[in-house]
Design a protein around this nucleic acid. Structure first.
Length: 112
DNA sequence: TCAGTGACTGACC
DNA sequence: GGGTCAGCCACTG
């Protein structure tokens, strides 16, 4: 039902939806943006629940080194990689090429 | 209620 | 320079 405050998960989804095309971010960046940098695991856990949200591009969320740690949770073996490559992001050895260039920091881009 | 798990990160050795 | 350990919070059994 309608809640006055959004849950931690909903906040994560909101940030993930704000990720622009061809960009990626890290769990820690989202966690830090939400004020819970030490709860990066919660972001990953939220992504697990994000499967029920088609509007949440969870494939744009990777770990701090640009490694597709969550690809194993996607259907298929390289669905996550294909989705990223479809956006112009190159993947090599399950890792994002030029991750620093494609990296999108919500706390920075949103100038919070 | 307690304990285990998890798509991470930072610090320590 | 690379591997290991602990912390963090939420959900499930």
């Amino acid at each position: 039902m309608a809640k006055a405050e959004e849950s931690f998960f909903d906040k994560v989804y909101d940030v993930v939806r704000l990720i622009p095309y061809g960009r990626v971010t890290s769990y820690g960046a989202i966690a830090k943006f939400l004020g819970a940098a030490r709860s990066a695991r919660m972001v990953g856990w939220a992504m697990n629940a994000a499967h029920g949200h088609d509007d949440v591009p969870a494939h744009r969320v990777v770990n701090r080194v640009g490694l597709l740690t969550g690809k194993h949770h996607f259907e298929g073996t390289n669905l996550m990689q294909q989705l990223l490559e479809s956006e112009g992001i190159k993947i090599k050895d399950n890792k994002i090429v030029k991750f620093e260039t494609c990296f999108w920091d919500p706390a920075k881009e949103l100038d919070f």
